[in-house]
């Protein structure tokens, strides 16, 4: 089950050019935005591209992203729900 979560962490590090951050540094439950990884509005848009590119899920309304990208856990849940 945790495979998807680990995959997402590695995709985020790659897509968002997070230097000096490794998979082990990102907690599955921790908030992605705010203090944590220091992500901003461009990163949020980039996560939308990442979902489409690697998981085939299209998000048209960027305001949806707020809930989906809360944490690795919420992202993984969203992807599983979409694919179910």
């Amino acid at each position: 089950m945790a495979e998807l979560e680990e995959e997402l962490k590695s995709q985020i590090i790659e897509s968002l050019n997070l230097e000096d951050i490794e998979i082990g540094d990102i907690e599955t439950d921790a908030p992605l935005f705010g203090a944590g990884l220091g992500l901003d509005s461009i990163d949020a848009l980039e996560l939308i591209v990442m979902l489409e590119k690697f998981h085939g899920i299209k998000i048209d309304d960027p305001s949806q992203g707020k809930d989906i990208f809360e944490s690795i856990k919420t992202m993984a849940e969203f992807i599983r729900a979409q694919k179910a």
Binding site: S15, L16, N17, D43, V49, E52, K53
Partner: peptide
Amino acid sequence: YFPSPATFV
């Protein structure tokens, strides 16, 4: 076809 906002900016 995946234009990237992080590149475009």
